[in-house]
Design a protein around this nucleic acid. Structure first.
Lengths: 148, 148
DNA sequence: TATTGTTATACTCTATAACTATA
DNA sequence: TATAGTTATAGAGTATAACAATA
């Protein structure tokens, strides 16, 4: 049966197939890496979206991550429950919540980021360092909004 | 608000974030490209998994795609309903179904593949041709099982 | 009227468990 | 006993619609 095992040449060239499985695998490795630090991969995404920027409203944080604002609510509920983020009413516009990392959130972010960096390096070890950096750069060009 | 819009430098370097959104966008473009031909992106995946290989059982087709055999059932139900694939009991092992593209399935595959190739080219136009090919090669190295 | 956060709800994709028929 | 296909079901992850508070 081994000759029928792999995806075959047609699938192997398909970008959706390749991106789907690369994402799936990297997400698995990330989950393994960050679970010991008390968050999952999606929660780490929220922490990253809040890191090193001006404090954001929930809606802004959702936009940075590319998810819906209704999805952000439950993620922040969980992170706030763990004491990793804080919500405060905005001083001038009381419809908004200002969302910020707590000290514990910054600690978790640092530890979890170190762990995912390690997981990324291991996953990318199949590539030359130059090809790995080129991969990241190319993905950024595809994903990031063109800065006009 | 525009200074808080993008993902920010931390997220922009995160591989899971980049792969997730690259996959999401490419999957959208693929759906747009193939819908006029009567299939969706996942169904095209099944057609690709069956293309140019020895006839496969449902389980083998699922393995090629990297999905569960129970997920394959509904996909084949749909494709068979459209007349794009056929299921026949295996001659020597009647537990198995031999799954094959019909003539109509091959026609659809060709048209849909042309359409997705065009969508891929447009999406990758943000990269140099060399970087685009390098991206595909690197993803293949990350995703495909090492051939030992 | 429009926007932010929220809730309820529903939809998509997927896998797990259990059944059946074959082996 | 084990495997291929099937079904029922449940769990993620996500978005849409509608509501309350505020602008």
């Amino acid at each position: 049966m081994s000759s029928s095992d792999g995806p075959g040449p047609e699938l192997s060239r398909n970008l959706v197939y390749l991106l789907k499985h690369a994402h799936l695998r990297m997400a698995e490795l990330t989950t393994e890496a960050v679970t010991p630090h008390g968050v999952d991969g999606r929660e780490l995404g929220v922490l990253l979206a809040l890191a090193g920027r001006e404090p954001a409203s929930q809606q802004q944080a959702a936009q940075r991550l590319g998810i819906d604002r209704t999805t952000m609510v439950a993620m922040l509920d969980a992170l706030e429950g763990k004491g990793l983020v804080s919500r405060h009413p905005h001083a001038e516009d009381r419809r908004r919540n200002v969302v910020e990392l707590t000290d514990a959130g910054r600690d978790t972010l640092r530890l979890a980021t170190d762990a995912t960096d390690k997981a990324e390096r291991e996953y990318l070890a199949a590539l030359t360092p130059k090809a790995a950096e080129q991969l990241r750069t190319s993905l950024q060009k595809l994903v990031l909004p063109p800065d006009d």
